[in-house]
Amino acid sequence: MSTHLITGAGSGIGAAVTRRLLERGDDVVALARDAGRARELTALHPGARTLVGDLGTPDRLSWAFGQQTMPDRIDSLLHVAGVVELGRIGELTPRAWHFQLNTNLVAPAELTRLLLPQLRMAKGHVLFVNSGAGLDAHAEWGAYAASKHGLKALADSLRHEEHANGVRVTSVYPGRTASPMQAKVHQQEGKEYDADRWMDPGSVATTILMALDLPRDAEVNDLTVRPGR
């Protein structure tokens, strides 16, 4: 049985991956921003454990983990959580930049740093759910795309640094996926949201599990997934 630590387990892709892992009997530790959210995740995913740490304040993750019992072994660290706030460069405030950069980039870097000892011991896997915006930036997506371009650089550097330690690193770049986050994006864009137009989170979860389940002689570095309709 493998142990997976996942962010963003409360909805969308993260919730779909968490369900799949629990259904097959794996051990899942879901990161929650506070104690209240931890209770919600426990109710949503019976059998999952929780760890409390706010991705919005990455400087405090080390302190938060020091107050809790950490998993002895981590076979995979799944960075799924993300936030988005659209806006033109000429209008985005530092608050909007920090909001997205902290959660989407700095927190994954810090979380990875803190958990590398367990990942190295298990010859584990770090998987980043990135975005199509991590490969191509468009108008009004500047801050979000910058955070996701940075996440790609983080993954690529980590892959080179940890290869000798047996740690595999994968970036997944989903296109638009039916989720609460996608509904928020449509609201910011002033568009009507129709979930049937976009990928089901379970389809992205299938690609994530494929990358995790590859035999040790293979590694998926980058995986792009797009809506098929």
Rank of each mutant, 00 (worst) to 15 (best):
His45Trp: 11
Ala107Met: 05
Ala153Glu: 00
Arg24Trp: 04
Asp217Val: 08
Pro71Ala: 05
Ala153Arg: 08
Leu135Phe: 03
Asp26Ile: 06
Leu135Glu: 15
Val185Thr: 11
Gly25Trp: 11
Val28Trp: 04
His125Pro: 04
Leu151Ser: 12
Ala178Gln: 04
Ala143Gln: 06
Glu91Phe: 07
Pro94Glu: 04
Arg113Ser: 09
Val83Glu: 08
Gly202Ile: 09
Val172Met: 12
Gly56Glu: 06
Trp141Glu: 14
Asp75Thr: 11
Ser62His: 10
Gly66Phe: 05
Val204Ala: 09
Leu31Gly: 07
Arg95Phe: 02
Gln67Leu: 13
His186Asp: 15
Thr57Phe: 01
Glu192Val: 15
His45Cys: 15
Gly12Pro: 10
Glu162Cys: 04
Thr177Trp: 01
Ile13Pro: 05
Gly90Arg: 07
Ala195Glu: 15
Ile74Lys: 04
Gln188Asp: 07
Ser179Met: 06
Leu44Asp: 05
Ala211Asp: 07
Ala218Lys: 11
Pro201Asn: 05
Gln118Asp: 06
Lys191Tyr: 03
Thr224Val: 15
Arg73Tyr: 03
Gln182Glu: 05
Asp217Met: 08
Ala15Asn: 14
Pro201Thr: 13
Arg88Cys: 05
Gln187Lys: 09
Ile13Cys: 05
Asp196Ile: 01
Leu135Cys: 10
Ala107His: 02
Glu162Met: 15
Arg168Ala: 00
Val169Gln: 10
Ala145Gly: 08
Leu214Asn: 01
Met1Lys: 07
His45Val: 08
Glu23Asp: 14
Asp72Ile: 08
Arg226Trp: 09
Arg95Val: 09
Ala133Thr: 11
Ala122Ile: 13
Gly12Leu: 05
Gly166Glu: 04
Ala155His: 02
Val80Leu: 03
Asp27Asn: 14
Ile89Gly: 05
Gly82Ala: 13
Leu135Pro: 08
Leu22Gln: 01
Leu61Phe: 10
Ala183Tyr: 12
Asp75Ala: 06
His98Val: 14
Asp54Ile: 12
Gly25Cys: 12
Met181Trp: 11
Ala38Lys: 09
Val106Gly: 00
Asp136Trp: 11
Trp97His: 14
Asp156Gln: 14
Val126Asn: 05
Pro174Glu: 06
Met181Arg: 13
Ala48Phe: 06
Leu105Gly: 12
Arg168Thr: 04
Leu116Met: 12
Thr103Trp: 00
Ala155Met: 02
Pro46His: 06
Thr18Phe: 05
Met70Tyr: 05
